[in-house]
């Protein structure tokens, strides 16, 4: 189907984009990679009156390490992460997720920031951002502000970005040499959203105890969710198989997946347990730790 008619405005700078968004308020939407917004407009699930295209903004396309953070700009494509050698070397969770988000063609347009702003209930980047404790940078009328990912993700398709505002970048703490992650996703076929998925990242202390744990599940409720109980169960402990099992068992307690053609609610709930368990094991394997 054709989308409803809309006014197209092209922004060449952050200031220009922001001015358009302020002017049009709730009528306007940011157009990033368009890989969620354009399908939604074609289905007429979304009919924004104005689209502010940020793709021409050269200063928005970057992927760099800065002050302890990996910083990803608003027009940086998934494929840029997938093919950056330094990501492959040091970011195991991002490497894993960037190979399973959507399909290879979509990843050439789709952006990480756009995906987090879209906040799809089955988003892969939102779960990853939770596990890695990302921070979003939002531009508003009073300047820019940093919003931790837990506060940024408000509800399905709803974030801390208010009317007339936009997200500028996502900042992800750089994992050190004793940090590894894993992304576990069940999908019916390439390019389908997850039936269920789990993002895991573990950081170890020199004494063999777990220093930090990041665990999130997606396609398991209205938005991707942190499994906080599992995280706190692990921190400070030496990993054992029983401990991993107990941590994984926390995931289904917070999951409320909808039954659909991908599976029943019971099945998906149990998969959160299975996938968190697998993710923990793989992260430890990558750390060279045997549980």
């Amino acid at each position: 189907m054709f989308p409803a008619s809309f006014e197209y405005v092209r922004a060449h700078s952050s200031d220009e984009a922001f001015a358009h968004l302020q002017q049009h308020g709730s009528d306007a939407r940011v157009l990033a990679g368009g890989q969620s917004l354009i399908p939604a407009m074609r289905y007429r699930l979304a009919r924004p009156a104005v689209l502010v295209d940020i793709n021409p903004i050269k200063e928005f396309s970057y992927l760099r390490e800065e002050n302890g953070f990996l910083v990803i700009g608003a027009t940086t494509r998934d494929a840029q992460l997938e093919f950056a050698p330094f990501i492959k070397d040091r970011y195991s969770l991002i490497t894993a997720v960037s190979a399973v988000v959507a399909d290879p063609i979509v990843r050439h347009m789709g952006t990480v920031v756009g995906s987090i702003c879209h906040n799809d209930p089955a988003g892969d980047w939102t779960a990853t951002a939770l596990a890695m404790r990302a921070v979003m940078v939002v531009r508003g009328p009073n300047g820019t502000r940093q919003v931790p990912i837990d506060q940024f993700l408000v509800d399905s398709y709803t974030t801390a970005v208010n009317e007339g505002e936009m997200a500028l970048e996502v900042r992800i703490p750089i994992p050190d040499a004793h940090t590894q992650g894993s992304y576990q996703k069940i999908e019916r076929k390439v390019g389908d959203y997850a039936t269920c998925a789990a993002a895991v990242q573990l950081a170890m202390n020199a004494d063999g105890t777990i220093r930090q744990a990041g665990i999130a599940i997606t396609a398991s409720g209205p938005i991707a969710m942190r499994v906080a109980a599992a995280e706190s169960m692990l921190v400070g402990q030496r990993p054992t198989l029983e401990l991993l099992k107990a941590a994984a068992a926390e995931a289904p307690k917070i999951a409320s997946p909808n039954a659909d053609q991908r599976g029943s609610s019971e099945y998906k709930k149990d998969m959160t347990r299975v996938l968190v368990g697998r993710g923990l094991k793989q992260a430890l394997e990558r750390l060279g730790v045997t549980a």
């Binding site: 368009g34 399908p39 295209d53």
Partner: peptide, 15 residues
């Protein structure tokens, strides 16, 4: 050489 789905891009984006 960037592959894109031309059904998921507005023509005006390719201007």
């Amino acid at each position: 050489y960037t592959p894109v789905k031309s059904c998921t891009m507005y023509a005006v984006m390719a201007d």
